[in-house]
Amino acid sequence: MNGTVQGALGRLAVAVALLASGATGLAHAQDRVAKSNDPQTQTAVADYNAGNLGAALSEFHQAAVRGSRLAQFNYAMMLLNGEGTAVNVDEGKKWLRKAADANMSHAQYVYGKMYDDGEFVARDPVEAHRWFLKAAQQGHVQAQLALANQFLDGRGTERDNKQAFVWYKKAAQGGDMTAQYVTGSFYERGGDGVDRNLNVARAYYAAAAAQGDPAARLKYQQLSAQLRDQKEVKPQ
């Protein structure tokens, strides 16, 4: 396997684990994202977590053929990562697309990220935007953040700070630390259709700080002091 492909697989693995909440193992991570009532998919998840990769691969494939979105996604990722088999990019992309077309939001996000990063495919921010939007509209937090970044940068779509704020705020409300910080900065400065509100800005900074963002903690402290000073200055 060449270095470029290894790098691509590594980044996809990170993307897959984003919603795992600390869970280990790709299949188990995705079971948290999109639960399946299909017995064979559940068996495949158990085999994957037990390290029985060959059995898991076969079971995911059988369930994927029957239409299980979770099985399609996990089968795709095992093929792309070369788990239990040799790397098979073409088949991996095919099954990932099936899961995305079946409206699995995390598959849509990962498929969009593939185009945004230019991994396994030619970089195409417009195509990435299309898939991020599909996933974001279903409430996928990482897709909402990715979409907001695209609107802010004008990548894959027209630059639109108002739309960027809409999606940053949704991602912030979904608990994303980066989006909480950026949403706080929108409220701190105002503009782009956002009314300046230091109290609301401080609340978003506090949320990000609680998740360990040192810059947000500093902003929270600064705004707290500023609001306290404003309160203490009374008109004569």
Rank of each mutant, 00 (worst) to 15 (best):
V5S: 02
Q6M: 10
G10T: 12
G10E: 15
R11Q: 13
L12Q: 10
L18P: 01
L19M: 12
A20P: 09
A20T: 01
G22K: 03
G25V: 01
L26T: 13
H28V: 11
H28N: 14
A29I: 06
Q30I: 06
D31S: 15
R32P: 00
V33A: 01
S36C: 11
S36V: 10
N37I: 08
N37W: 05
D38G: 09
T41G: 06
T43D: 15
A44P: 08
V45Q: 13
A46F: 03
Y48N: 15
N49C: 02
N49G: 03
N49E: 13
G51N: 13
G51H: 11
N52F: 02
G54W: 00
A55G: 12
E59L: 03
F60T: 05
F60P: 12
F60K: 02
H61W: 09
V65H: 06
V65K: 02
S68L: 07
S68Y: 09
S68A: 10
Q72A: 02
Q72K: 07
F73A: 14
F73T: 15
Y75C: 11
M77G: 12
M78E: 14
E83H: 09
T85L: 04
A86K: 12
V89Y: 04
V89D: 09
G92F: 03
W95P: 01
W95M: 08
W95D: 09
W95H: 07
D101F: 02
A102Y: 01
N103Q: 13
M104V: 04
S105C: 05
H106E: 15
Y109N: 15
G112Y: 01
M114Y: 00
D117W: 11
D117F: 03
E119T: 06
E119Q: 09
V121W: 04
R123P: 07
R123K: 15
V126L: 07
E127I: 13
R130C: 00
W131F: 08
L133N: 05
L133E: 10
K134A: 13
K134C: 08
A136C: 13
G139I: 07
H140G: 06
V141F: 00
Q142R: 07
A143K: 01
A146K: 05
Q150A: 10
L152I: 03
D153W: 02
G154F: 02
G154Y: 02
G154I: 03
G156W: 09
R159E: 13
D160V: 03
N161G: 05
K162A: 13
Q163H: 00
A164P: 11
F165P: 08
W167P: 04
W167I: 02
W167E: 02
A172Q: 04
G174K: 10
G175Q: 10
G175A: 11
D176F: 05
Q180E: 15
Y181D: 12
Y187A: 01
E188Q: 12
G191C: 05
V194N: 06
V194Y: 00
R196T: 10
N197K: 03
N197I: 07
N197Q: 12
L198D: 15
N199L: 00
V200T: 14
A203D: 15
Y204P: 14
Y204L: 10
A209K: 05
A210S: 13
A210W: 01
Q211T: 04
G212C: 08
P214V: 02
P214Q: 05
P214H: 01
R217L: 13
L218V: 04
Y220Q: 14
Y220D: 15
Q221N: 14
Q226T: 08
L227E: 11
E232P: 11
K234C: 08
P235I: 10
Q236Y: 02
